[in-house]
Each structure stands twice: as structure tokens, then as C-alpha cells.
Design a protein around this nucleic acid. Structure first.
Lengths: 341, 341
DNA sequence: CTGAAAGCGCTTACAG
DNA sequence: CTGAAAGCGCTTACAG
């Protein structure tokens, strides 16, 4: 009855061995039954389940990770939490992953490739079951770390046609062009583009803006105001003021993100500029509050929740060893026309 | 030269044993040297460090967790990521914890005690090294899970004088009272309190509001408008409209959070109400954009970054087995007077 | 101050 | 379909 009592470090924890004993099977069978591995007699599965219930067994993720070199954690890397966009993305990811038994290890890169590389290194040591990363812009080392980890990885927010790459996103270029065309359709010709952060996706929107204006024969490089500073409402106010002080005859502004646009709208009000009569103002992402602005802000509703959800589902497939088809999902965005344009 | 090649599952990973061999010491000594345990000869430490460097050794957190029943993860539970307040808090926590070798496992409870309990259960299975939780309001089961885990735990955002409880926060009651007294000092007498979410900290601010008004003999329960809905700019606009339609003679509004206040300010503008002439408007937390509103919003700057930083440092002490003194830190807030009052 | 042995709680690989 | 043995990569507990 007594276990040899020397050199024990028992944590008092209920282990798989306890469950197996209680169920009258071997630990391996209990393990297989619990993981839903096929090839275990249904009656045994029931017995094991009942024993788990009775003993209140909780599997030890560390032991599982060590033995299988796979954990139930999924590393999710996003640039920033202060952009509501990524919060929506993470919420959606969590909504899919958590019920499936996975936990999101959230890493914030601050749009800094070196920081991303460091986080990746640290998270990879934890043997995550999968990886969710934002976009394609990273250091070569980071790329190799992902590659050589052999882990399932889904790229979010951007899309590519490259083979063997899994991604869920939308065309930032097209969305930028669509919004610009809306401004052109409203009769605007001197359309400025104001951006901050200057991350890859922002620059893709800039590319869409340029394309649309070139098509219309209205492109003027001087109408671009690009700042490397971090995007914020305050910066939007500052940039609008600067824009109007240094460029003539501007009749519309496309801000690369709604926080900038909201700040621009508030600055216009302080400057006594009538929107949209004197100046049309548009943003991007349809963030909280944009519909409440005076006047309500025209913007592009981007499908970040859908991206998070579809991306997480795709990763789940990959972690199960399945082949998601298509390997790259392009989701729709929508130009939301309100009274600011 | 050849290891017995049967039944190997080697992951190809560089292990502590490799490091030990390379350094010419035993694995235990290598382990101790790496963890900075005192009582290892300085020369040996150097040798081990060099070997780690040469081999590119990365410790395996799963193995470490299994052997020591402690991981390098810290579970951090916050109510919401869509409130910028908690994003600031998390950033600060990460800034302290990550360089110290810990990773934050971020859990979002959505102000739902059952959800918190579920997350706690799931995170506790991962043997975190410590716990960071928001406030004191949770299910009895959650409380016991924390208690019986025996893990170091620091409570954030609120304070208590209860013995044996570690916390870093500020007095929500006093901050609420201070802002209310500012409105009183401005000559306002019919001061409304508009709140959403109705979480414990919001209700503590309400308590401060009541106290200050009672002291001034101005308290009127009808001036409170409390909504259980989630706080947002849009809701603030709606609540201000409702408030003014159903209450007479209101000369000031204290919104329990800045997003509501920003919405209120925008609604006032649409309604043609002059702020602060007709109505003083104040918020709470000093969130992004509040200084950019028209007029700029009076609010309370809450020390969330400081709370996150001090809380994480306190946890670090506890995880080292030290006794932080004091066990409860009360940080200062600041009433920021702008043009809306 | 340093080390040989055992153990943490699982799963893999091999058998039957 | 089920299981006994070994191993995942560390650290604890005991010795010296």
C-alpha cells in the first residue's frame, strides 16, 4: 500500500498515472483516450473520462510539452495594442483558439523588427503549437527562425501569392485605391495623403492612393505628408495643421488611420475649416468613435475580426496536420461613406 | 564517440548536458551557474557562460517547469483590452517582466467573474511563476484557486488594508471625489454622474462623487445615470442626450471614463450646447485624444503605467521570495483641468 | 563549492 | 486495440 517514501518530490498533483489506476488501464491508454486518439475502445474511453471526473485531473502542460515537444500555446505577434485594430484581431483569435484548448501568447513588437525577432526567439523556446504573425515584413533571421522551427504559421492582415505561405488578410493597396476613388468621385482633385508610422501596410495604402490618382491624372507627390512618428489623435491634429500651412489648394485629405483622421477633424474645427465643404476628410479602419465625430467620418471598414477568426481557424487546421485550401484568404473591406466627404 | 542509437527521440536541441560537457562541469553545476544560484565558483560560471555562448544554448522552459514546478510565465488578468487604460498597464508590466526573464500570459475577463475563473483555472495548470490580477472583485472559487495555488499574487488598480494582500493602485473613491470637488469649486451645483460598465472601480468613483456632493449639500440621486452597457464613445453620446432629455437644470457632467466623456462632448456639439458655458464636462483616466477635444477635456490622469510597473516589480520581489514593504502601494492621481470645465 | 542519482508527468517508439 | 520501457530536459534532495 505504501509507496517507497524516499526521494519523493510529489507535488500532490493528480497525475495521469492516478487516473489510469483509477480507470484500471495503463497510463498510455489513458493518455490516448484523453487526447482523443483513435484506436482506443469506446468503453475504455468512458472509464478514463469517468476517472478524470472523479479525481479532478488536470493535465500538466509542461510535462506534455516536454514529452511531445509541442505545447498548447500559440504565439501571436502584433505590432501594437494601442491601435484598436489589433485588439479586435486578438479578441477574435482568442475566441477561436481558447475553446479549442489553445492559449494565445501575445507579443507586441512595436513595429520593430528587432523586437519581433527577440520575442520570437523567446516564444519559440516555449515550443508553441503554432504561430500567428502580422504581415510579411521581418528580419531575415526572424524569417529563418519561423522556417526552421517547422511550426505551422499563418500571416495576418496582408496577402501574398507566394507558394507555401499561409495568410489571411485583405488588399491594403486596393482598399487605399478604393477610398481614393471615392474622393475623386466626390469631385475632389487635390487629395492629400497623410500618414504616420509608415509600416508596410500603411505604405501599401499609399501605393493604392497613388495608383488611383495617377489613373485620374491627379497625382502630385507634394500632396503626401509622411511622418515616422507613432499614429495618434494628437499627431493627426498636428499633421493637418502642418499640411494646410505648407500646401495650397488641398480639397481632401486621406488619413492612413482613423485616429489621425479624428485628430484632423478636431483640428479643422479649431481652425474654422468647414468639413466637407472646404475640405473632405477620410480615414481608414473605422475605429471606435469615427461614426460619432462631427461630422461623422468617412472611412474604410477593415475586416480585422474576420481576419483574426479565419486566421486562427486556418492555424487550427494546420496544427491538426490538415492542408487548408486555399492557403491564402482574401477578405472583403468596405468603404463607409459618412458626412465628412 | 557514438551514442547508443536506439530509442532516441532527440530533438536536435542543444541541452544543458551539452553545455555541461562543453564546459567540463556537471549538468547540475551548469544549471546552478545559469540560474545565478550563489555558491558556484566564479571561474566555473564563466566557463559555463562561454559554453552557452558557443553552443547557442536556450533553456527549455517546459523541462524547467516540470522539474521545478515553476514556469517563467506570469498570468496577467485584465478586464478589457478595448480600454486603453489596460493596454498602458500591460505595456508597463511587460517592460518590467520581460527583461527579468518572465513572459506575460495575458487573459481578458470582459468584466465577467466566470470568465475570469475559467481563465485562472486554465492558466494555473501552466504553473505560472506569479499572478497579476485586476482589483478584488471575483468569485469565491477564483479567490480560493489563487489562495490554494500558493503563488505570489499582486492585485492591481485598487488598494486595501487587508493583511497579507499585495496590491498597487490608487484610491478610486478619492479620485472621484477630487474631480467632483473641482466641479464644485467651479461653481457647479447640479452635477450629474454618468457611468457605464458599472464595474467595482466605476462604482467606487461614484462613491467619491456622492461623498463630495453630500459634503457640499448638493447630492441628488436623480442626477446619476448608470448604464450596464459597455463603455464607448457612442454610448457617451447617447447617455448625454438621454441625461439632458430627462433631467432639468444640469450644469455639469462627470463621466466615469474618458471615452464616454468624449462622446458626450461630441453630442453636446451636435445639440448646440456650449461647453463649458452651458455645461461643464469632465471625464476620468485622461485617455488618448482627450486633450485634443473641442474644448479639451478636464479629466483625472490615473497612474496606470506606474501601477503596472510597481505591481510587476512587487511581483518580482515576491517571486524571489522577498517580502515587499509596504505590501500595499497607493499611487497619486492628478486632476487635469482643461477647458471643458 | 560540486556531483551522481532520481524524479517531475507526460508521450514516443516499439511490440504484441 | 493495448502496454512496458525509455526518454523528453531540466532541478531537487541528498551527499560529500
Amino acid at each position: 500500500m505504501n509507496a517507497p517514501a524516499r526521494r519523493r518530490r510529489s507535488s500532490g498533483r493528480v497525475t495521469l498515472a492516478d487516473v489510469a489506476r483509477e480507470a484500471g488501464v495503463s497510463p498510455i491508454t489513458a493518455s490516448r483516450a484523453l487526447r482523443g486518439e483513435r484506436g482506443v475502445g469506446p468503453e475504455l474511453v468512458d472509464k478514463v473520462r469517468a476517472a478524470v471526473e472523479r479525481l479532478g485531473y488536470v493535465p500538466d502542460p509542461a510535462a506534455r510539452a516536454l514529452a511531445s515537444s509541442r505545447s498548447t500555446q500559440v504565439a501571436v505577434l502584433v505590432p501594437l495594442l494601442s491601435n484598436a485594430l489589433f485588439v479586435d484581431l486578438l479578441e477574435a483569435v482568442h475566441r477561436v483558439l481558447f475553446p479549442a484548448g489553445y492559449q494565445a501568447l501575445i507579443g507586441v513588437t512595436h513595429y520593430n523588427p528587432d523586437e519581433e525577432e527577440q520575442l520570437l526567439r523567446s516564444y519559440l523556446a516555449h515550443r508553441p503549437a503554432g504561430l500567428l504573425v502580422t504581415g510579411f515584413d521581418r528580419t531575415e533571421t526572424a524569417r529563418q527562425l519561423i522556417q526552421s522551427s517547422g511550426l505551422p504559421c499563418v500571416h495576418l492582415m496582408e496577402t501574398t501569392d507566394a507558394a507555401g505561405v499561409y495568410c489571411v488578410g485583405f488588399s491594403q493597396v486596393e482598399a487605399g485605391a478604393a477610398l481614393t476613388r471615392h474622393l475623386l468621385a466626390r469631385g475632389r482633385r487635390r487629395i492629400a495623403f497623410v500618414a504616420a508610422q509608415l509600416d508596410p501596410r500603411t505604405m501599401q495604402r499609399a501605393e493604392g492612393y497613388r495608383r488611383a490618382l495617377r489613373e485620374a491624372g491627379c497625382y502630385d507627390a507634394k500632396l503626401e505628408l509622411l511622418s515616422p512618428e507613432r499614429s495618434s489623435i494628437a499627431l493627426g491634429a498636428r499633421l493637418l495643421t502642418e499640411l494646410l500651412a505648407t500646401r495650397d489648394g488641398i480639397d481632401a485629405v486621406f488619413f492612413c488611420n482613423d485616429d489621425l483622421a479624428q485628430g484632423g477633424l478636431l483640428a479643422a474645427q479649431r481652425l474654422g475649416i468647414r468639413v466637407p465643404t472646404d475640405l473632405a476628410v477620410a480615414g481608414f479602419n473605422d475605429l471606435a468613435g469615427s461614426d460619432q465625430m462631427v461630422p461623422p467620418l468617412t472611412t474604410v471598414r477593415t475586416p480585422r475580426s474576420e481576419v483574426g477568426e479565419a486566421g486562427a481557424r486556418m492555424l487550427l487546421q494546420l496544427m491538426r496536420g490538415e492542408q487548408p485550401r486555399p492557403s491564402c484568404v482574401r477578405l472583403p473591406y468596405e468603404v463607409v461613406v459618412r458626412q465628412s466627404t
